[in-house]
C-alpha cells in the first residue's frame, strides 16, 4: 500500500506519502494564494524524498474541504487527474477530519477553519476519529452556543477567540494526518467520501462586467 495524500482546502498546501504503517514523507507550505503553483512541485519533492516512483502509489487521498473554492479545486482536480492517469482510486476525506485526527483529542471538541467573509467551516467531534455533525459554514457568533465550553482546533478557532476561547492544537491541515487517518480507515474497511468538493455555499451569481478582458493596449 502506498497512499499519496493532498489537501488544499485551507491556506496549507500539504502533501504526504504513507505506506500503510507510517508516514514516509510529507511537506506543507502555508500560502493561501499559490495553491496552483505549489502543489505539484511539492508532490514531486515528496516522492523524491521518499525515493519512490509515482507508479507505486496505490491510492490517492484528497481532502474534499470544506474550504475556499479556488484553492480547494486545485487539490481535487490534481488528485482526480493523477488517479485517472495512474488508474488508481481517489478517496475523499473531510478536511476537518484531518485536523481532528491531528489533534489527538480524546474528549469532545470542535474543529474550525477560516471560511473568509467572517465565517468559519466547522464540525463537532466526540474524539479525534469521530465526527458528530455534518461540516457547516456559519458566523462564529451564530454558533457560540453550539460550541460553548468545547476546546477548539484549527485556524478558524484562533481567528475568533470570542467564540472559541479554548483554541489549541494544530492550526493548519497536514496531509500526513490525513494519510494516517486514511490508512487506518482502509485497514478497518471504513468508508470514504467521493472525491467531490464540499463548497457548502452556492456560487455568487453576479454577472461579471468584463469576463475574459484581454485588451492588449
Amino acid at each position: 500500500m502506498l497512499l499519496l495524500a493532498v489537501d488544499t482546502a485551507t491556506p496549507a498546501v500539504t502533501v504526504a506519502l504513507h505506506d500503510g504503517s507510517s508516514v514516509l514523507a510529507e511537506e506543507s507550505q502555508v500560502d493561501a494564494r499559490r495553491h496552483g503553483e505549489l502543489l505539484l512541485p511539492a508532490v514531486d519533492r515528496v516522492l523524491a524524498g521518499a525515493g519512490l516512483k509515482l507508479d507505486a502509489v496505490t491510492d490517492v487521498i484528497v481532502g474534499v474541504g470544506p474550504g475556499p473554492y479556488t484553492g480547494l479545486r486545485v487539490g481535487l482536480v490534481t488528485a482526480l487527474t493523477l488517479g485517472s492517469a495512474l488508474g488508481v482510486p481517489v478517496r475523499g476525506l473531510c478536511t476537518l477530519d484531518g485536523l481532528a485526527y491531528a489533534s489527538g483529542a480524546e474528549g469532545p471538541f470542535v474543529v474550525a477553519t477560516d471560511a473568509r467573509r467572517k465565517e468559519v467551516y466547522w464540525a463537532r467531534y466526540a474524539d479525534a476519529r469521530t465526527r458528530l455533525t455534518e461540516p457547516a459554514v456559519d458566523r462564529p457568533a451564530d454558533i457560540a452556543e453550539a460550541v460553548a465550553g468545547l476546546p477548539a482546533v484549527g485556524a478558524g478557532a484562533r481567528l475568533y477567540p470570542g467564540t472559541f476561547p479554548d483554541a489549541h492544537g494544530p492550526e493548519h491541515q497536514s496531509a500526513a494526518a490525513l494519510a494516517s487517518l486514511a490508512a487506518e480507515r482502509l485497514a478497518a474497511g471504513g468508508e470514504f467520501l467521493p472525491a467531490l468538493p464540499l463548497y457548502l455555499r452556492r456560487p455568487d451569481a453576479q454577472v461579471p462586467k468584463n469576463y475574459k478582458v484581454v485588451t492588449p493596449k
Binding site: 505539484l40 486545485v74 475574459k212 484581454v214
Partner: peptide
C-alpha cells in the same frame, strides 16, 4: 491565460498533474 482566473486554474492544475503522471 488569458481568461477567468479560477476557471484557468482548474485546467492548469489538471494539465500539470496529467503531464507529471505520464
Amino acid at each position: 491565460g488569458p481568461g477567468l482566473a479560477g476557471a484557468l486554474l482548474v485546467g492548469v492544475s489538471a494539465a500539470k498533474s496529467y503531464a507529471y503522471a505520464l
